[in-house]
């Protein structure tokens, strides 16, 4: 089983988890469909389609595309995935796999990949639907956009990993998830774009993972190079969250 790059057992775990993920219609709705629906609703507000001088010649609807992308990441990593891991841990699925040639880490890996894939699908939908319905701009600096996107994805999954690792059980975990979820939505700019916050509030929000991600994605979309500070803030969060999570995660 070790000759091939991906063993038969690992492939089977991915195949099975993909099927099971397809049955989680709630998760799929919130990750893939909801951000697109939100952007469409906002796009039909006439004033959001007017150029806003405060936003450097962009329209409100334009900056809601990256915000929608971040929303999808938050849904996947903080709302959808931790309960799956809690469930697997409490039901003994992880422990059960520990006694087979496949490691439980494979199961967690499959979950991360699947939730990441759902985010990617949502991103493509947001870019295409925004472009077709509201002429939102495609990323003007694709390389920087991809980098900011990747860091944002890692940072949000880092938050999800922390939630999963520190929670003693599913009930507390869901509560902790909520506590992380709403500030993440706020700092990502879902209610009020970070770019329009200004002043001290904006400076604070830019130090949060989603605040920094929002700024970096926005700047790359507008064609500029994201501020190094935003990228470094995300890198810092990735290191901290995964560092803590990998030390505190329990398999059973």
């Amino acid at each position: 089983m070790t000759q091939t790059l991906i063993s038969r057992g690992t492939a089977a775990v991915f195949r099975t988890e993909t099927r099971l993920f397809g049955r989680e219609l709630g998760s799929l709705f919130w990750i893939v469909a909801f951000p697109v629906v939100l952007v469409c609703v906002l796009g039909f507000v006439p004033t959001f389609r007017d150029v806003d001088p405060d936003l450097g010649g962009l329209r409100v609807i334009d900056i809601y595309v990256p915000i929608g992308i971040l929303l999808s990441m938050i849904m996947a990593s903080i709302m959808a995935m931790p309960p799956v891991v809690f469930g697997y841990r409490e039901a003994g699925v992880l422990r059960r796999l520990q006694t087979t040639p496949v490691r439980p880490l494979t199961l967690l890996g499959a979950q991360v990949v699947l939730h990441g894939a759902a985010v990617a699908a949502s991103t493509v939908l947001l870019l295409v639907v925004g472009r077709l319905l509201f002429q939102t701009p495609l990323p003007q600096a694709p390389g920087w956009y991809a980098l900011a996107y990747l860091l944002a994805l890692l940072a949000t999954f880092g938050l999800g990993a922390i939630v999963t690792a520190v929670a003693p059980n599913a009930r507390v975990g869901t509560a902790i998830g909520m506590v992380v979820f709403f500030p993440s939505m706020f700092t990502a700019g879902v209610w009020f774009p970070v770019q329009g916050m200004g002043g001290l509030l904006q400076q604070i929000v830019e130090l949060t993972p989603l605040g920094a991600a929002s700024q970096a994605l926005y700047q790359a979309m507008a064609g500029g190079v994201p501020d190094l500070a935003h990228l470094l803030v995300m890198v810092g969060w990735v290191i901290i969250t995964f560092g803590v999570a990998s030390r505190t995660f329990r398999w059973q």
């Binding site: 057992g9 099971l20 039901a91 699925v93 059960r96 006694t99």
Partner: peptide
């Protein structure tokens, strides 16, 4: 070694056939 653990469940939405096929692929 094959083990049947006390109080160990599977993924709630996995079908019996899928579980058997999955475990078959491990060995």
């Amino acid at each position: 070694l094959g083990i049947q653990l006390q109080e160990s469940a599977l993924q709630p939405k996995i079908a019996v056939r899928e579980a058997l096929e999955l475990w078959t692929a491990f060995y």
